[in-house]
């Protein structure tokens, strides 16, 4: 009898080969199956995200039940999760609803402040990391300073040479390194995808 592990490899191989072959086939039947599979994957993905949400809820609820260390904060997480979900399902998500109010006045301010906090840590990392120890570190420092100066009003007011140089750096040397990295990522992704389809790389589906 085939175990779920073996069946999952068969499904992975068949779905992978179909996903690859459909690109080269203009047949309407294949296009139709392809569109259906795209929807199927989207549905499964949505359920997978719900599993993640339920897992977070279960973990924090468990901490509250066991009166674990910092359980009060877990209670805050559980209560806010339930409140936000209930607000979305009961009152809708349109403008003016409680759900939209919570999103605009609770989630968005906190999220943007967390990202704004990173400005301080990036500044402290730059202070420690931006020492001109060698030519490479010097290039990194000069490029970062050039880009930052060119993107602030005083840089543009000081001289038009700054924004033009920054544009050249972005469009020529930086772009060339970015393209090389993208080509490398592309080749690496193709290799990994082939390894997954052929069952050489099994960790993704619990091999």
């Amino acid at each position: 009898m085939m175990t779920t592990r073996k069946i999952s490899f068969v499904i992975c191989f068949a779905a992978g080969i179909f996903g690859l072959v459909q690109y080269f086939s203009p047949h309407p039947a294949i296009s139709s199956v392809y569109r259906s599979l795209l929807d199927w994957v989207q549905i499964i993905f949505a359920f997978a995200l719900l599993v993640g949400a339920l897992s977070v809820l279960r973990m924090h609820a468990g901490k509250v039940m066991k009166r674990d260390r910092h359980w009060v904060y877990s209670a805050v997480a559980v209560a806010s999760l339930i409140a936000m979900t209930a607000a979305g399902f009961a009152g809708g998500a349109d403008r003016g609803s409680l759900f939209a109010w919570l999103f605009d006045n609770v989630q968005v301010p906190m999220q943007s402040t967390v990202f704004a906090l990173l400005a301080f840590f990036v500044a402290s990392a730059a202070y420690r990391g931006f020492r001109m120890r060698n030519l490479e570190a010097g290039i990194l420092l000069v490029t970062a300073l050039l880009i930052m100066l060119a993107r602030i009003p005083i840089g543009e007011l000081a001289t038009d040479w700054l924004p033009r140089s920054a544009d050249w750096v972005l469009n020529v040397p930086s772009m060339s390194a970015k393209r090389a990295l993208l080509i490398g990522i592309g080749l690496g992704s193709v290799t990994t995808a082939l390894r997954v389809i052929l069952g050489i790389e099994r960790s993704a589906i619990g091999g």
């Binding site: 779920t4 996903g19 592309g186 992704s189 193709v190 990994t192 995808a193 389809i197 993704a204």
Partner: peptide, 27 residues
């Protein structure tokens, strides 16, 4: 173990579709 079945469909199909797309866009 049962969750491997939907995961296999999602990952296998995603891997297959990504090969021509990655070659086209990234390479």
């Amino acid at each position: 173990g049962l969750s491997r079945l939907p995961l296999a469909l999602m990952i296998g199909f995603g891997a297959g579709v990504s090969i021509p797309a990655m070659l086209q866009a990234r390479v």
